[in-house]
Design a protein around this nucleic acid. Structure first.
Lengths: 286, 286
DNA sequence: TCAGTTTTCGTAGGGTATACGAGAATACGC
DNA sequence: GCGTATTCTCGTATACCCTACGAAAACTGA
């Protein structure tokens, strides 16, 4: 990634075309790469800036950005993130590989766009829209929408969430979660950390869940079969004296079966305990 | 990964050499790839099987498996996971790239070995060894050791933990955490799910923290500077009406500064709330 | 000394992202 | 209707990635 220079005059031109008034977006924003990425992320919310005016001159484009992003997502959903290579996406769209670079500055940027797109797919009520009355039900809604998102797009779990795409999808998700946490009436700082703790757990647990199911599907090997393949572990290497608690839990059947219901129960257990802990703060306050 | 056939007769031979008695490990285990990986993971715990007998015949090896794994870890620590390519590791060791395949069947296996190695670096008391008396202090120990591990090896956060390497390092970590959770006297099933919830949170939060610090180091750009680069967001795209809670928290200074102390506080807040929730279960029981 | 065994590693082949530049397609001014 | 400026398309080349294959080197025991 970003091994070579970062020229991309092509795309600058394209974005200068989408100008709103006298000055192009990139000029107004200093033209940095962050400004360019923001312009792409927020392309569908142009009301606040200006209408996107497509350039009149030159050859007509055969695609648009949405088509590229959508194709990349579809490919990653079905065949895994590795299949969403520039080559793969181009082939799926029936164009040459390099054609994609007319629409997207780099693979990294494409990933950002994919991520924000699917983050925005979650059906979360905006401000003023009807939502569950109870605090926990509001969080539950967030949790279930996020889980469903990860299940639809398991590749999400393999993308780093530090310095994420700051697009409409991500912001809508955060706004909803924060507004749900705000119901508790905690101080602003605690409201934010509570929301942070919840995303940390939900994103991680939902990602693991989705990835696990995906691996079962793509390898055709159930998790049980995978463990069974490691039968040697217990017979040859595992030392009961060194692992008394694991042994005890095993003997008490504490590991559960590998069913989806058991995984679901684990997921909910962790989230419920976390919410219990957060809720307890308000009880002490009043 | 694993694009081509999976022959690796070379390594089978090597492991057959490390036999314990009449029958080679791989024969006893059916010779599957899982058995081979287990043999490599547990190479330093041969007491339970037999001594590793190095082959007398043939050219002497210039390296050993530990040297390869250690070099790969060192490279990933300093230069990032991408630097730990087969080529990169070989260069660091002063050998040809393909020489590594004498010691490791594939890059995937090398990653497994790296992961189990660093998991085992955590200084967690084994069964019978002295440990903190209080339950929370025991968890705290696990949490801090794990955080330190992620800080030393930020690349860990970018490796999937589904179907992890089932080696001595991973098992020691799980044993300790489970034994700490067992103190609470919950049913076996709940003890396990509680431990699962804790790892989910700790691994994720510690990984994010470590990755964030690493990105600040390697890009030379602080998180504050990164946000500042996205100044446009607020000026051009952000809609206050659509994001009232974010706005309110911002105005109440609820996002905190980007200092390490603030991140530490967030981390602890989430973990403490989770532990509160788990602990509350025992209160209801008695 | 030589045969058998093991390790070393160059080469080749298929994958990845992307810089560069030539050519095709379109719109506008004349 | 004809340049010409502009824009999009995409083949080629470069620098990486992993690893199969096979020849040569190094070592042991007979």
């Amino acid at each position: 990634m970003r091994k070579f220079g970062d020229d991309s005059a092509q795309l600058d031109d394209r974005l200068d075309g989408a100008r709103g008034g006298e000055v192009g977006i990139l000029e107004r924003s200093g033209g940095g790469p962050a400004g360019r990425t923001l312009a792409l992320l927020w392309r569908n919310r142009r009301e606040r800036t200006a209408e996107a005016v497509p350039p009149r001159l030159g050859r007509k484009p055969t695609l648009d950005l949405d088509a590229v992003v959508t194709a990349a997502i579809a490919l990653a959903d079905v065949q895994g993130l590795a299949a969403a290579s520039m080559n793969g996406v181009a082939k799926a769209l029936g164009v040459g590989t390099m054609t994609l670079y007319t629409y997207v500055p780099s693979k990294d940027e494409l990933l950002d766009l994919m991520v924000d797109q699917v983050l925005g797919e979650r059906e979360l009520p905006g401000p003023g829209e009807p939502r569950p009355a109870d605090w926990r039900d509001q969080i539950e809604l967030y949790s279930e929408q996020t889980r469903a998102m990860f299940r639809r797009h398991p590749w999400l779990a393999r993308i780093s969430t530090i310095r994420p795409p700051v697009g409409p999808g991500m912001l809508a998700g955060r706004e909803y979660l924060l507004s749900a946490c705000a119901v508790l009436g905690l101080p602003a700082r605690q409201t934010n950390t509570a929301a942070l703790a919840i995303t940390t757990y939900v994103d991680s647990a939902a990602g693991l869940e989705a990835e696990s199911e995906q691996v079962e599907r793509t390898t055709g090997q159930s998790n049980d079969a995978w463990w069974h393949e490691r039968n040697d572990l217990w017979e040859t290497y595992f030392d009961v004296e060194r692992h008394p608690t694991m042994t005890a839990i095993w003997n008490a059947n504490g590991y559960g079966d590998g069913t989806r219901e058991a995984a679901d129960e684990s997921y909910r257990f962790g989230l419920d305990r976390l919410l219990d802990g957060i809720e307890a703060l308000t009880a002490n306050q009043s």
